[in-house]
């Protein structure tokens, strides 16, 4: 039983990690032509890809793959060529904190470190960037440039909108739809088309920061603008509070009635009569009366106790001799020097 329980816990943990962890990650922002944007640790200006952990738990992307799909390069099957970069494991920096960002510089050799990919972005037309899970097949995030896209110096493209994580709005294809897809490219395009948030050109790049730079008005201020008097909030909130508590009221009203009936039935079955809720009517004792009687009895008993304790008892205190209370046996005697004549 314990083993089964442990296995169940392990499976659940595994499921939660795989389901909620890495799926919360998305490709958030991409800069293809870096002329005067940020420089990397080697002092170079490279194209970069920003990964964003949209979730509220730490996620390690070590072991995952970042792939780019070349727009004009095809393999033997007629699919566009995808070049993948393996994100090395065992680097603590690949673990992204909740709502955290990581930047990958696309410098082309893949030998400068974990965050330097083996491909370049600006050399050949690239129409899609894909983040794959550790098996290299399952898609975590897709970032597709529109057909009309041509790289503009220092213009980043990003996902604006984060009220829902991408995995939750990932399009689910039916079997029929999947059958209709003739190629892997078509499959990737179908996924990219179905995404709620599509990449958009940004006014300025925001590496390692939120893309919502134009959102000057805070969420609560927007709410205030829509409801300046607070009446709407009051009505909604009071409604919800009432709804929550009335729902509990209804459930416990019904539940209480069931319990009372059951209690009465049990009482009758045991040869008595229905008592619950009828004490007062039958001339029996109410709860308050029972409490009062109990209190009176307690006070009476305490009173007795006090009276009892006031009795003075005189006992004989004489101590009879016993080797156990003998003083002489309780004291360690000092050693005495014996003289030898």
């Amino acid at each position: 039983m314990r083993k089964l329980f442990l296995i169940l816990i392990t499976i659940l943990c595994g499921l939660s990690v795989s389901a909620q962890g890495v799926l919360n990650v998305r490709i958030n922002e991409v800069l293809v032509r870096n002329d005067s944007d940020i420089i990397d640790d080697y002092g170079q200006r490279e194209s970069w890809i920003e990964i964003f952990n949209t979730g509220y738990e730490r996620v390690d992307i070590g072991g995952c793959y970042i792939g780019i799909r070349y727009a004009d390069r095809f393999d033997g099957n007629g699919n566009k060529v995808i070049q993948k970069y393996y994100i090395p494991r065992n680097n603590p920096n690949t673990s992204i904190e909740p709502l955290g960002y990581r930047l990958f510089f696309c410098e082309g050799t893949g030998s400068k470190g974990t965050f330097y990919t083996n491909f370049r972005l600006g050399d050949e037309p690239v129409d899609m960037i894909i983040l794959y899970s550790a098996n290299g097949k399952d898609i975590i995030s897709v970032f597709r440039f529109p057909d009309t896209y041509t790289p503009v110096p220092d213009q980043a493209w990003g996902i604006i909108g984060h009220d829902e994580i991408e995995s939750k709005v990932f399009p689910k294809l039916t079997r029929a739809e999947k059958r209709a897809l003739t190629s892997y490219d078509a499959y990737l395009d179908a996924i990219a088309t179905g995404l709620k948030y599509q990449p958009r050109p940004m006014v300025q790049s925001t590496p390692l920061a939120t893309n919502e730079i134009n959102e000057e008005i805070s969420h609560d201020e927007l709410f205030r603008q829509q409801d300046p008097s607070g009446i709407v909030m009051t009505l909604i909130a009071m409604g919800v509070v009432f709804l929550a508590l009335v729902a509990i009221f209804i459930i416990f009203k019904v539940f209480g009635m069931v319990m009372m009936k059951r209690s009465n039935r049990n009482s009758i079955n045991n040869g008595g009569e229905a008592v619950v809720g009828k004490q007062a009517k039958n001339g029996g004792y109410t709860g308050e009366e029972v409490a009062a009687i109990a209190m009176a009895l307690k006070m009476y008993q305490e009173d007795l106790h006090v009276r009892e304790s006031s009795i003075i008892t005189i006992n004989n205190v004489s101590r009879k001799y016993s080797p156990w209370n003998s003083k002489i046996h309780g004291i360690t005697e000092l050693p005495m020097r014996k003289s030898h004549n």
């Binding site: 008097s229 009446i231 009051t234 009071m238 009432f242 508590l245 009335v246 009221f249 209804i250 416990f252």
Partner: peptide
């Protein structure tokens, strides 16, 4: 359980203060 609704009504203070 109907006393539950009184607990809801008294939350009016929160939203009165909000207004």
């Amino acid at each position: 359980p109907k006393l539950m609704t009184i607990g809801a009504a008294a939350q009016l203070g929160i939203f009165g203060a909000y207004i």
